[in-house]
């Protein structure tokens, strides 16, 4: 089932000035409920613009955005309600922290939603747990934290609103491998527990292969390809055509197949390729 559907959406920045720029050109794409969909593409391919549209920060120049089959711009005055349902974590979200303590900052969203203090407290605890923030850190000022910790706090600030759709614009950019694993792992748990839909913008093909169910590839303000991770990553040449990479391990698998070695299975994760090779060796009896 489709949770969010984008129909023929176009967006032009600064229309009618010399700075006019088309960011999205007749884009149609759907995001499945309860799945993690990865969004990849070059810088300037329209990913961030698309992401800003999903929770109504930008209004499409033309076209519609449907959330559960309903146009989010049907009642423009109630667009803020859409923002509670579709949570957006921006690029480098640590810039948005402002409150005295981490606890208050994470509670900013839920408090705006009009929840009681007790509920806010519950949400803060739950969100902190998803991203790996301990009780001690909750009492600190967000400004004395390290970059990676700030990132977690900012993401928790969105998760605390318990959105049905969680959109993240490069949540792991600039983090160390452990930070990446913890934050992205937290997302998977969030999806499982709340039957949420996640849209993840990333440049890391490895992360895509590990955490996503579906992938949407964008190029030159349009959707270039969309499908399951397997469909997209099994064909290295298609992505190479627009200058994108597949995961390194998928390249190895593809090279092996070119050599006439018939591998089968999930040929885009290290685990999957390992299994396929072992299976191949067993099959060919070498």
């Amino acid at each position: 089932m489709n949770k969010i559907e984008i129909q023929n959406v176009s967006y032009t920045y600064s229309k009618g000035t010399p700075f006019q720029m088309v960011a999205l050109n007749d884009v149609s794409v759907a995001f499945e409920k309860g799945k993690i969909t990865g969004l990849i593409g070059h810088t300037g391919s329209g990913k961030s613009t698309l992401v800003h549209m999903l929770n109504g920060l930008y209004r499409p120049t033309s076209g519609r955005i449907l959330l559960d089959g309903q146009d989010i711009w049907e009642k423009p005055k109630e667009i803020s309600k859409i923002r509670y349902r579709v949570g957006l974590v921006m690029q480098y979200p640590e810039y948005q922290l402002f409150d005295d303590t981490v606890r208050l900052d994470i509670g900013f969203g839920p408090r705006n939603q009009g929840l009681s203090e007790q509920e806010v407290e519950e949400r803060v605890k739950e969100a902190a747990e998803f991203v790996g923030i301990d009780d001690e850190m909750l009492e600190k000022s967000p400004f004395e934290l390290s970059g990676g910790q700030k990132r977690r706090v900012a993401i928790a600030g969105i998760i605390a609103m318990r959105p049905e759709v969680l959109v993240l614009d490069e949540p792991a950019a600039g983090l160390d491998p452990r930070g990446r694993r913890e934050i992205l792992g937290g997302l998977v748990r969030y999806v499982e527990r709340n039957d949420a839909t996640v849209i993840l913008v990333s440049h890391s093909m490895e992360d895509m292969a590990l955490y996503c169910d579906n992938v949407v590839v964008m190029s030159h303000s349009q959707v270039y390809r969309s499908g399951t991770v397997r469909e997209i990553f099994s064909d290295a040449d298609v992505l190479a055509d627009i200058g994108l990479d597949v995961p390194a391990v998928a390249k190895i698998a593809s090279a092996l197949r070119h050599e006439g070695i018939e591998l089968e299975g999930e040929l885009y994760t290290v685990e999957g390729v390992k299994r396929a090779i072992i299976e191949y060796i067993g099959r060919s009896g070498k």
């Binding site: 920060l57 923002r83 900013f108 969203g109 939603q113 609103m161």
Partner: peptide, 8 residues
């Protein structure tokens, strides 16, 4: 935009 996303 970030704060609007948090319901500000």
């Amino acid at each position: 935009n970030a704060q609007k996303s948090r319901g500000a």
